[in-house]
Structures are given as structure tokens and as C-alpha cells.
């Protein structure tokens, strides 16, 4: 039976100020594609997209889910939720030149989970699966948890790096 083990919950990035929303969206999507989570035909879903206009600014909520099959027993899942408040266009001056960009209060929530028995091979043999996971492949499960933990933090660093570049 497929089981989901949460690896990181509540990993957040908060940003207030100018940033290019379109570029941020592309940067994260590109990271997911490059790392095998972004195939829209198989493993990537935009689970939520809600946009509201309030007083000349937008409020946007987006939720993405990307899954990557790493072997015939394990899959990694990464979920990203965007909460954007007060999104509007703004002009900024850099190096004597004026640029138009976006400005908002942004909160990104990242979470990752490990799925075992992704093909449901142990569907009617739960005891056997428990013994298998706990005594036969426990080192492998721990190894996979560490890999996924490092992966979600690599995405976290990529996003932070992008936003830092936009400190005007």
C-alpha cells in the first residue's frame, strides 16, 4: 500500500517589495522541470489558481504539486503554495535607469514528502510491507529522506537567490 512520509513542512519564504512575478514563476517552474518534477503530462499539476482584485491590486493564491518517480518503489513529491497580496506594477530606478516591475507581499510555502510503494505492490500485504520497510530497507528509506530534504532546501536556496537579486 502506498504510504506518504512528510519530509519538510512549513518551509517558508517571505518577501515584501519589488520582484518580477513572471520571472519568479518561470524560475520555479524551470527548477521543477530540470529536476524531473515538472512534466505537465504526467507528474505536475497546478492544483489551485485563484486571483482576486482588491482596490487596484491583486491577491493571488497558487498551488503546485510535482511528483518524481525515483525508483520502482519510491517517489518524491514537492508542493509549492504561493500567497501573494497587493500585487501591482511599480517603477524602480537602478543604475540611473527606470524599470517597471511587480511589487507585493509574497509568501511561498514549500513542502516535500516521500512516497513508498508508489505502485501499490503490497496492497493486500500490509504486515509484510511493514516488515520490509522497517527491517529490510530502512537504510534505503533513510537515504531517500535525506536526499529529498536536500532537494527541497536546494529549491528554497534557488528561490531566495532569485529574490535577493531583486533587492533594489
Amino acid at each position: 500500500m502506498s504510504k506518504t512520509i512528510p519530509i519538510s513542512k512549513g518551509l517558508k519564504i517571505k518577501w515584501k517589495g519589488p520582484f518580477d512575478m513572471g520571472e519568479l514563476y518561470k524560475t520555479i517552474k524551470y527548477w521543477l522541470d530540470f529536476n524531473g518534477y515538472g512534466d505537465e503530462k504526467k507528474t505536475f499539476r497546478e492544483e489551485k489558481y485563484v486571483e482576486r482584485i482588491k482596490g487596484g491590486a491583486k491577491q493571488v493564491e497558487i498551488k503546485w504539486r510535482g511528483e518524481k518517480k525515483v525508483s520502482e518503489y519510491f517517489s518524491y513529491v514537492i508542493e509549492i503554495t504561493y500567497f501573494i497580496i497587493g500585487l501591482k506594477k511599480t517603477k524602480i530606478t537602478k543604475d540611473g535607469k527606470e524599470y517597471e516591475t511587480d511589487k507585493a507581499d509574497l509568501e511561498l510555502r514549500l513542502s516535500a514528502s516521500l512516497i513508498t510503494d508508489n505502485k501499490n505492490k503490497f496492497k493486500d500485504k500490509e504486515l509484510l510491507q511493514q516488515f520490509y520497510d522497517k527491517y529490510i530497507i530502512q537504510d534505503r528509506i533513510e537515504g531517500k529522506k535525506i536526499e529529498l530534504y536536500q532537494k527541497i532546501y536546494s529549491l528554497h536556496d534557488e528561490i531566495k537567490g532569485f529574490l535577493e537579486l531583486h533587492k533594489y
Partner: peptide, 12 residues
């Protein structure tokens, strides 16, 4: 890996 018993013995 075609059935759970094979998977189990492979693990061992």
C-alpha cells in the same frame, strides 16, 4: 519486482 514476495526476497 512483479509481486510483493519477489520484492521482499530481493530486499533480503
Amino acid at each position: 519486482s512483479s509481486n510483493p514476495l519477489q520484492l521482499f526476497f530481493r530486499g533480503i
